[in-house]
Design a protein around this nucleic acid. Structure first.
Length: 423
RNA sequence: GUGCCUGUAGCUCAAUGGCAGAGCGCUACACUGUGGCUGUAGAUGUUGAGGGUUCGAAACCCUUCAGGCACCCCA
């Protein structure tokens, strides 16, 4: 305990219990991705800073990235997002890939932000994208993947919802109000802030941005109109497809969903937990038409979303949806009766492992009481003992720690007896 | 990067300027061939760290670190 060096701010240490949560999320992510036929891939964790500088704002590169100069003098950064790497990798092999391309990934990312609940500086993120098809039906598939994940972890439509909007729809509504194209970004930010400001201040802010009173009233009408999607052919087709895919109950139209990202061009969506303490998005994504052209590739449209493990983990924990933590993968503890029986215990454990049973041997001939206590704490189901009596008759004592029953069986029958109990 | 709140035993927390405590957990024994339950006993500690005020600081002041909340941002 002499050393007091702390972990880096905003990082998390994965003790076995947290590791189990991370793996749980990973398994569910993989299952949902593979159910729809997506391939797993990954990109480097360290990238040249220019990869992001080209497309992203100064905020990202200068303030929110872990950047450093390597020993060769190159400026590099721990990846803050995956999409630029995706765009580069596709552009590099654009002609030889098979489209539509369906790729997913789950890996670490770093952002130099102020840590708080649901936001750390080092986190894992699920990214999933389909490229090469530009249709609302493809958008619907990605939303269905997201819904499939939510369902698979036990988040019902009452508990989690995916809110959908469409940039093109909003742009055309803005046009109708006479809001010029140059103001769209400001108006998007305005919409994003609506839930965070009180309405009088929000109105004042809108007028400050140069909207007329008539435009402001019109904007409020749009943002309150939850049937607006019926004006969009894309969204009508999207919702029809979601119906067919069996996930319509998870999805709601919401004209207030804008998303900060500049590169979204069509459908955008965000998932939220509806009742919990966290008001952060579980996942978010949308359609991007220009991404590849922006990095020098041939035009290629894509749709995708990302989900961070931090928010997802907190929500699952608070909702009580995590499976019970299993401290050890060992199904069996082989006790060590005393020093003279020690090697017998090792022989027995080796026999069990050969038969495919995960088995742990207590590391020393301690009092049996202590060994059983250990087995209990590790939630091991069975304790096996070879004492002098059992050894003399080529037998093994099997105690079922869940029921307290103990039986003594012939050595050659041990594996089948264990399998009978453990299943 | 900004503002506010918090930091005490392994964990959850008490002690508001006067001897650092409780519950849970932990260790030992009852129980030297068997866990959970019960009983008895025991140890919990640089009060996040560093400095200052004071006869005396866990408490008040300053600095710093970490966490939380709200900004910023959310690629």
């Amino acid at each position: 305990m002499a050393s007091k060096i702390q972990p880096v701010k905003g990082t998390r240490e994965f003790y076995p219990e947290q590791m189990a949560l991370r793996n749980f999320i990973y398994e569910k992510v993989r299952a949902a991705s593979q159910k729809f036929g997506y391939q797993e891939w990954d990109a480097p964790f360290i990238e040249p800073i220019d990869l992001y500088a080209a497309k992203s704002g100064e905020e990202l590169v200068k303030k929110q990235s872990f950047t450093f100069t390597d020993r060769g003098g190159d400026f590099v950064t721990l990846r803050p997002e995956l999409t630029p790497s995706l765009a580069r990798m596709i552009a590099a092999k654009q002609g030889e890939l098979t489209y539509p391309l369906r790729w997913w990934s789950f890996g670490p990312f770093w952002r130099y932000e102020q840590p708080q609940k649901g936001r750390s500086r080092e986190f894992f993120q699920w990214n999933i994208d389909m490229l090469g098809v530009n249709s609302p039906e493809a958008d619907a598939e990605l939303i269905a993947v997201a819904a499939t994940f939510l369902r698979s972890v036990g988040l019902t439509p009452e508990r989690a919802a995916i809110y959908v909007n469409n940039r093109r729809l909003m742009d055309s509504e803005f046009d109708t109000l006479g809001i010029v194209a140059e103001k769209r970004l400001d108006v998007s930010n305005l919409v994003d802030r609506r839930t965070k400001m009180d309405s009088a201040k929000w109105d004042a802010y809108a007028l400050e941005l140069g909207l007329s009173q008539a435009q402001l009233d019109g904007l409020k009408n749009i943002l309150g109109n939850f049937d607006l999607w019926k004006n969009s052919d894309e969204l009508v087709r999207l919702f029809a497809t979601l119906e067919a895919l069996g996930v319509r109950d998870y999805v709601k139209f919401d004209p207030n969903i804008m998303r900060g990202l500049l590169y979204y061009t069509g459908t955008v969506f965000e998932a939220f937990e509806t009742s919990g303490s966290l008001k952060r998005a579980i996942m978010g994504g949308g359609r991007y038409d220009n991404l590849l052209a922006d990095v020098g590739g041939q035009p290629l449209s894509g749709v995708g979303f990302a989900m961070g493990d931090v928010v997802a983990g907190i929500i699952l924990q608070e909702a009580g949806l995590l499976p019970e933590f299993v401290p050890t993968p060992a199904a069996v503890l082989v006790t060590v009766f005393d020093e003279s029986m020690w090697l017998k215990s090792f022989e027995l454990a080796a026999q069990l492992r050969d038969a495919g049973v995960n088995a742990m041997v207590f590391p020393e001939p301690a009092k049996l009481q202590k060994q059983f206590k250990f087995a209990d704490k590790m939630k091991i189901k069975l304790a096996l003992t070879v004492g002098p009596d059992e050894a003399a008759n080529a037998q093994v004592a099997i105690k079922n720690l869940m029921t307290g029953e103990q039986i003594t069986v012939k050595r050659e029958a041990v594996v089948s007896e264990i399998q009978k109990i453990v299943g």
